[in-house]
Nucleic acid binder design. Structure first.
Length: 716
DNA sequence: AAAAAAG
């Protein structure tokens, strides 16, 4: 925009001439009120900005193809020339202010308030382009400051439109939505809003949020009372308020439409909703606006939609070249091969213990653990919370002390989700067990480890997850824990990533169905997981079991999958029979000929009418047990209780007669006696168990149940 | 039934 003033009169004249269609809303801009740019000619520059930007959609009938192309070329060659000759590359935030690109108030807040000095490459490259008003698709690695890269120019363009907004205003401002930012998750939307409020803290710009799971009425009232210039939200709620005639929220002056994590928002799952939102915004023929797409990954599949979404002269800014590594070189990426499902949590426990043991005070162990299914997140979090120190005295510290165990996924109610994210953000040492809700964009400070359990759904998901560590100039490491049955697919899916095999986890390949002489700490890990799993509601295990059939149902080696799931149910979960799965589902997933599955009429998900599944989300039922904090779906509480009574009454009876509970107590008591006979050399308040004390006794117990159960449990 | 996202 201001650069247009530097282009020389010819190009300015040309641009103004080709853009003859009047804007519906003329910018209320006058040189005397304007802070930017200072000096003569400023109004020309600003008008040029708004006019050039309008042309692709309003001109076709009046201007020929050649003329449009011509104008675009002028724009581009001029900007290139300017960058190359007139000024050096802009690398500091202060430069933006010094060169009158961004107003002093915003820059002062960023430099002195937020303590930032140097721009990242994606910031310096995109801020300039975006200020011009053109559409921009920006691709840059995770943790390189993309949020600020779109916030600064979007906010500056808002100020250009109404320079009064540079200063804090004390009058009540009306709802005048100038920019909308969309994020695929609620937490990311909130995070962007927090960042935007920081940047605008000394201006009159008002930032509001529109995300699901929050009080809609309260936010609507807040908008009416405080006004709104920048609205940050998630697709569902944005659609909701834009389509609700009673909400009175419209965006007639919208000048920027930003999709953060654009590739995600434009993929099949979100596209209809994004399209819907766009249809409720003023036509770009009438009101010019720029579309800005930001992401660390831009798969080829979305490029077609990107082209349809953007003006034809959009600029693709990338700091990652095609074919170049999309992850950071500084993050070592290790791949651990585990024998099967039964080894996942023992290996994770071993990895976490090691991380905690080797942490230094400057970088406490702070990990995010990703699972592909929410049911696995819930189960793993509960298991880790149940962990007991060997000896199981209440006085002993949790084995993962001082790390807090935090879980987050979309089945939590929004208050719990927000709290989980805040707690993890603030935590020194913590383990966040997460679904892909936090995979993109979330900026948790000082994450040292990203641990992915099982094959991620795509290499893009892998890249975004691992991007939660190594942000800015911070270090970090990535771990991928893969079961043998999925290794082949992973090699193909993740072939372009610099994964390095790691065989240092001793629990990784232990066959829990076999007797073996195991090193003490290995046995301890296994026992701790088995003991912690045993106490968990079988219903949760059953849901996780079924979830994996859906998650991995596409695998060619279905029998290996089921055998591995059954091994875990038996040796980790201490279940006598594999959890039952509805026969219709087994058929649908192509498991009809796979052995070892227990088909049952009872569903794990209650009697939900078919159309209850159509939209997923709130209508999907998912019983997470009696704990608070979980959303209960539509399935009735009563039917679940009834089911539990029928299905697991027998198992509960067993435990009363000396099943899981007794085995646990017995081994605990024995080891306690024995430990008191010799000196404790670890000084940790508890003593190491001997190998036979724990793991062997656990195994002995499991083998005794092996004899009792015969039906359909193992193949063969 | 497999992330997420409106109620």
């Amino acid at each position: 925009m201001f650069n247009a003033a530097r282009r020389g009169s010819a190009s300015v004249a040309r641009i103004v001439r080709t853009s003859s269609v009047p804007r519906c809303i003329p910018p209320p801009f006058s040189p005397s009120r304007a802070c930017y740019p200072c000096g003569s000619g400023s109004s020309v520059a600003v008008r040029t900005l708004s006019l050039t930007a309008t042309n692709p959609y309003q001109k076709p009938a009046q201007a020929g193809e050649a003329e449009l192309r011509d104008e675009v070329d002028i724009q581009q060659s001029n900007s290139q020339a300017r960058e190359a000759t007139q000024h050096g590359p802009v690398t500091r935030f202060q430069d933006l202010s010094d060169r009158s690109l961004v107003c002093k108030t915003l820059i002062r807040t960023i430099t002195t308030g937020m303590g930032l000095d140097t721009m990242t490459p994606v910031q310096s490259k995109t801020i300039n382009e975006t200020l011009k008003g053109i559409d921009v698709l920006a691709q840059a690695r995770t943790g390189t400051g993309k949020t600020l890269a779109f916030l600064i120019p979007v906010l500056q363009n808002i100020i250009n439109y109404d320079p009064n907004l540079e200063q804090r205003t004390f009058r009540r401002s009306p709802i005048d939505i100038r920019a909308i930012v969309i994020s695929p998750t609620r937490e990311l939307a909130e995070q962007i809003a927090v960042e935007a409020r920081k940047v605008t803290s000394n201006t009159g710009i008002v930032v509001q949020t529109a995300v699901g799971g929050t009080a809609k009425g309260m936010h609507m009232r807040q908008m009416r009372e405080q006004g709104c210039h920048l609205l940050v939200g998630t697709p569902g709620r944005l659609n909701d308020i834009l389509s609700d005639p009673r909400s009175q929220v419209r965006a007639p002056n919208l000048s920027a439409f930003v999709l953060d994590e654009a590739d995600r928002l434009l993929d099949a799952g979100f596209l209809p909703e994004i399209t819907n939102i766009q249809q409720q915004l003023p036509s770009r023929r009438d009101i010019d606006r720029q579309t800005l797409l930001f992401s660390a990954t831009v798969p080829d599949e979305v490029m077609q939609i990107v082209r349809e979404t953007m003006k034809p002269d959009f600029k693709f800014v990338r700091t990652v070249q095609k074919g170049e590594q999309q992850t950071h070189e500084k993050i070592p990426q290790k791949q651990v091969s585990v024998r099967g499902f039964a080894n996942f949590l023992p290996a994770l426990l071993e990895l976490c213990k090691r991380g905690l043991a080797s942490q230094d005070s400057a970088m406490p162990f702070k990990a995010i653990v990703y699972f592909g299914a929410t049911a696995e997140v819930i189960l793993a979090a509960q298991t880790f919370r149940n962990l007991k120190a060997p000896g199981s005295s209440v006085f002993h510290k949790h084995p993962l002390h001082p790390a807090r165990i935090i879980e987050i996924h979309a089945r939590l109610d929004q208050a719990s989700r927000t709290k989980a994210a805040d707690n993890f953000r603030r935590a020194e040492s913590a383990i966040l067990i997460s679904s892909d809700v936090t995979a993109r964009g979330m900026d948790f400070p000082n994450v040292t480890h990203v641990i992915q359990m099982g094959i991620p759904i795509s290499s893009d998901t892998y890249i975004h997850r691992i991007g939660r560590t190594g942000r800015g100039d911070k270090p970090g490491e990535g771990w991928l824990i893969l079961a043998d049955f999925e290794a082949q697919e992973a090699r193909y899916r993740l072939k372009k990533l610099p994964l390095v095999g790691d065989e240092s986890l001793e629990t990784a390949q232990v066959d829990m169905s076999q007797d073996a002489q195991l090193p003490e700490h290995v046995a301890t890990n296994l026992t701790q997981i088995v003991d912690a799993s045993r106490a968990i509601d079988p219903e949760r295990k059953s849901i996780a079991y079924t979830a994996n059939l859906g998650l991995y149902g596409w695998l060619p080696h279905k029998q290996d999958l089921v055998d591995s799931l059954n091994d875990r149910a038996k040796y980790c979960w201490a279940m006598e029979e594999p959890p039952s799965v509805p026969p219709g589902l087994l058929h649908k997933l192509g498991f009809s000929r796979v052995q070892g599955l227990a088909a049952s009429r009872r569903t794990s998900f209650g009697d939900v009418p078919d159309n209850g599944y159509q939209r997923g989300r709130s209508s999907r039922s998912f019983d997470n047990g009696p704990d608070n904090g979980y959303q209960r779906g539509r399935s009735s509480k009563d039917s679940n209780f009834e089911r539990r009574g029928n299905s697991y009454g027998r198992e509960r009876g067993n435990s009363d007669r000396g099943g899981p509970e007794r085995a646990f107590q017995r081994s605990g008591a024995r080891s306690y006696d024995r430990d008191s006979d010799h000196d404790n050399d670890r000084g940790l308040g508890f003593k190491p168990r001997r190998r036979e004390d724990s793991w062997e006794s656990t195994k002995r117990w499991m083998e005794s149940t092996d004899r009792d159960s015969s039906s359909g449990w193992r193949r063969g």
